[in-house]
Amino acid sequence: MQHRVLGRTGLEVSVIGFGGIPIQRITEQEAVTLVNGALDRGINFFDTARGYTDSEAKLGLVLKQRRQEAIIATKSMARSKEGMAADIQKSLTALGVDYIDLYQCHNVKDRESLAQIVSPNGALVALKEAQSKGIIGHIGITGHIQELLVEALKTGEFATVQFPFNAVETEAKELLDLAHQTNTAIIVMKPLAGGALRNARLALGYLLEQPVTTIIPGMDSLQQIEENALLGNEWTPLKEEEWVVLKEETEKLGQAFCRRCEYCKPCPQGIDIPTVFLLEGYYSRYDLKDWAKERYKDLEAKADACIACGQCEEKCPYSLPIRQMLSDSAGILADG
């Protein structure tokens, strides 16, 4: 397995990592087989989160036994010092370890959240205290809005940044350049565009040609582990005919694909449009049906609250048919 240095952390991580979302839908025994298989094939970077139900616990079944072979990353939506401190302890307990290599501020999507995190009583204080105690190694940030992540990196507080980047979502020059200048590691989530890209070998191969550190596709079968690990071991640049195939696939995704830029917000009816589409993707592409529907239930305004005013479509830089997409999502995610 090829390795790259995780920015200024100095950690050497496999170019193909393990994304911890799909492991939620398999049994504990299947998870044990999967994680052991990943480690045996040279995958050493494992990313999970407090919000991924039992993902931390399932990874921990193996990682606590093979701790020296793994670099563990997890993350929390907590924004306050108290909340983050509590989540760090919960992560340690769930994983069954006494040390986490990378702890990330998860899904930072507005300036208010970032300001709260770096405030005198914010999550960053708890992370630094945990770092000084030796229970976490490094601090990172994740999100979908590149402008906000650029602001975060300019603070100098984050050693890694994780965001969606793939053959569809390619607009990342400013963030990539700043990460390079500051020696901040790039962790790529959604490398298959949330499962929309079906040719994993070409989609991941495309990313391996980019200035990123590690790519974390979600995997829930040994076949996926074997194929992705093989790519990380024997990767060579895409051939011209492979570029053609990949381009054809990305073009087929066409208009009906949300990049989660959030320019459509705010919705007059209070609908969190990108989150609706994200949950629909988990339902349809990741087969996390129950998980997605439960989270959809928690939304204050559901997709069927749309009154088809069209303001969102006027603001969407990708000209998505958002009204129709909301209607479709409502039909998929609603009970019944």
Rank of each mutant, 00 (worst) to 15 (best):
T74S: 02
R323S: 13
L149E: 06
Y283I: 00
L92P: 01
L320A: 10
K265D: 07
G134E: 02
Q224N: 06
D87M: 03
Y206D: 01
E313W: 12
I71C: 00
K133G: 04
L61H: 11
L202M: 05
N121V: 05
L127A: 14
K109I: 10
M189A: 02
Q324P: 04
E226Q: 13
F277Y: 13
G336K: 11
G232Y: 02
A330H: 14
A334E: 14
C267L: 03
F18S: 08
E129H: 10
S80E: 06
V13F: 01
D328Q: 14
G270K: 01
Y318N: 12
L127P: 05
L197M: 12
Q224H: 08
Q269N: 11
E313H: 11
C258A: 05
K58E: 00
G137L: 07
G195P: 07
K109W: 08
A78Y: 01
H106Y: 09
E251A: 15
K265I: 04
L127Q: 14
G195T: 08
Y103S: 02
L175A: 12
L230M: 06
A123Q: 01
E227D: 15
V108S: 09
V118D: 08
I71A: 00
G37E: 09
G51W: 00
I187L: 12
E240C: 06
D220R: 07
V168Y: 08
G60D: 10
G232C: 06
G42E: 00
A130K: 06
I187V: 14
S119F: 03
T74P: 01
Q89A: 13
T160N: 07
L124Y: 08
D220A: 09
T250H: 00
D328F: 10
I186S: 00
A308Y: 14
V188K: 01
C261D: 10
C105I: 09
T9N: 11
G10K: 12
A179G: 12
D220M: 05
P274W: 05
R260C: 03
V108L: 11
K297S: 12
L204N: 06
I21F: 13
G20S: 10
S132H: 02
E147P: 08
R295G: 01
S327M: 09
M77S: 03
G83H: 11
G60I: 06
M84W: 06
E171R: 13
A330N: 15
Q116C: 00
V245S: 04
Q89H: 13
T275L: 15
Q162I: 07
K247L: 00
E249L: 10
D290Q: 14
I135V: 15
Q89L: 11
E56A: 00
L278M: 03
E69Q: 15
K154W: 03
E129A: 11
A31N: 05
L192H: 04
T53H: 12
P274Q: 04
